[in-house]
Design a protein around this nucleic acid. Structure first.
Lengths: 197, 197, 197, 197
DNA sequence: GATGAATGAGACTTCATTCAT
DNA sequence: GATGAATGAAGTCTCATTCAT
């Protein structure tokens, strides 16, 4: 009986990399298999179809973000600023890893278009992201404002990911991060003043 | 002359719509032909290949933006605020037309990945956009600031286009527009105060 | 009423050149039209199909050879040697014209394979050629020998055309001509000796 | 291992037959697949393209001739006559096999026209053939003569293949073989006399 | 007669997927 | 579990042919 050459996890990671770098369409099952040291047919022992594999990739990223990034938004041991910092730090290693490929931003859009069922998953990811940010902003401002700030933050990051990709230049992402932090700081100060009064 | 069912322009427009809605890869030449009331092979009377067609679509959009949107940035008959307003107004009908498809944002990213030569064209589009915005911001602030503001503006719009797409909800774009306008107004006021002093 | 831009003859000649240079399959109706200063559809005013056009090309060449080359084989005003010389001279301008393209040799083989009906025509051409040569050789040798010599002559010329084409070097044809002439001369001498006895 | 219906060799042979019988252009990948009991797409497991397949067919024939035919020209255990005999015998089974299709003669010409890269390969085949024959003739005559005789021999065989094909009658090839042998014999005798003197 | 847009069959090719080994 | 040959649908593209103008 042949031994298992790879793990499901491994295939997930490798295919994620490929999807990010080359897009869903430009990545063939053979590419994925090759990246895993397998041959075409073998992927099907782990995932029933390319579509299913993609769905698990999305879910895997979603889980990862929930556990490694978004969680800090709810970490009562941290103050608001520390929560933001922690999220930034955790996500940065993802955004800037692997040739600047983003996570669910660009993949998301391409993918959401391709197969309707992907759209739901992608939306859920962004909803969790928005909710996490909103939760942090809620600590320093009013509910309506917090929601808008969360939306603005996601908007800027996703736009920056796109420009970073198009120009192959990370500065857009770096600038966006800076703006978000500065904005956060100014809200912190305003809130501090409000409380001081 | 034989019965001409379609014009090159018409094919360009129809394929642009499809590329926007379904992405480059998910749009087949047969789809495009069908959208034009033609059969597969007939598209090849107008464009030598799918790739060439895509390139012309991109160029067409670029031209369109140059002539209908970016031009206002250099219109000396308008004051800075009017220039921004004019650009917003002109672009809005594009962003929000046709199922909320964006212009060169999402197409751009997918496409830039697929075929290297697309990347150049896409970059050029964004460079013209950035230059136009920078030119307007230059009227109300310092050069370095103007450049950053231009980048922020494009970043926000592109991110908003993406979220609008993912959630099929135009509010992200509307909010982004509002933020950009407000930011612009605050710079206008600051500049006015500086001059008053 | 539009005037006739070209003659049927003209199209025949131009398509013959193309077929010789690029082969039947690699020559499109558009190529032929372009060579004639026309557009695709217009060829169909003169010839009902590509196949029919090819057939007329073959027939045209056959006629041409009958009238301009093979005729000398039966010209009672010439002696055997003069007949051979005349045929050589007349055919040379064809063999060596137009980038060394042959006449019905290589086209013939390709074409005979493609469409069975071409095969008949091609055979008829070669039969007339063989008959003409046989008739000349009959003047200087016995019937059986004459037939073999005719066959050898056609064989050598066609093989030489092929090699000339493959190596893009006319020497094979030149050498073949020389051999044929020498062989003819030696038969002339033998015949003269026989008569002298 | 999965059920392997065919081998690379098998596809090579089958496609060679088809190319010979129907020419390169008239043979579709579907034809080849069908001849192998496969479906269109399956051929691509063995050969990346039709062109590549053709190149391997040519190479395969070239190799075959080198190993099975031309080799006798250099076999020091044989005298000149035996070398010629061996080459004839070995090649005959190819020339006359399979509906009288030739080897690289007619295919060669058609193919050399179609794709320039084929031309090189075809030339190389003929160069090896010429070289082999020249080597044999060198044993019985002077260098210049040997070269001419080699060229004549190839010329005659190729021309004979063509006529055999056109008339679907092997007699042209048989006659050519006879002439070549007789010519060889007469040179042998001349050489023997020269040495006797 | 000339045009050239449109057709539609068919070619080459790719690739997700299946399955016998 | 792994293989990789085979499948078959679908995609891009070519081209002989038709026909309204």
């Amino acid at each position: 009986m042949p031994k298992q050459k790879v793990s499901e996890q491994f295939i997930l990671i490798e295919s994620m990399k490929l999807f990010r770098r080359k897009s869903y369409h430009n990545t063939s099952m053979a590419d994925i298999a090759a990246a895993c040291g397998l041959l075409k047919g073998s992927i099907y022992h782990y995932f029933p179809s390319k579509e299913a594999l993609m769905k698990e990739v999305i879910e895997h990223m979603h889980d990862f973000f929930n556990k490694e990034v978004f969680c800090y938004a709810y970490d009562s041991k941290l103050n608001p600023q520390e929560r933001m910092e922690a999220m930034f730090k955790a996500s940065k290693k993802i955004y800037l890893s692997d040739e600047g490929g983003d996570v669910l931003g660009n993949i998301g859009v391409e993918t959401a278009i391709v197969i309707p069922e992907f759209a739901d998953q992608i939306q859920k990811f962004f909803l969790d992201w928005l909710k996490a940010l909103e939760n942090v902003y809620l600590q320093i401002t009013q509910p309506y404002e917090a929601k808008l700030l969360a939306e603005q933050t996601v908007t800027e990051i996703e736009g920056a990911v796109m420009l970073t990709r198009i120009f192959k230049n990370p500065k857009y992402l770096i600038e966006a991060n800076k703006r978000i932090k500065d904005r956060f700081a100014s809200f912190m100060i305003a809130e501090a003043e409000r409380l001081n009064r």
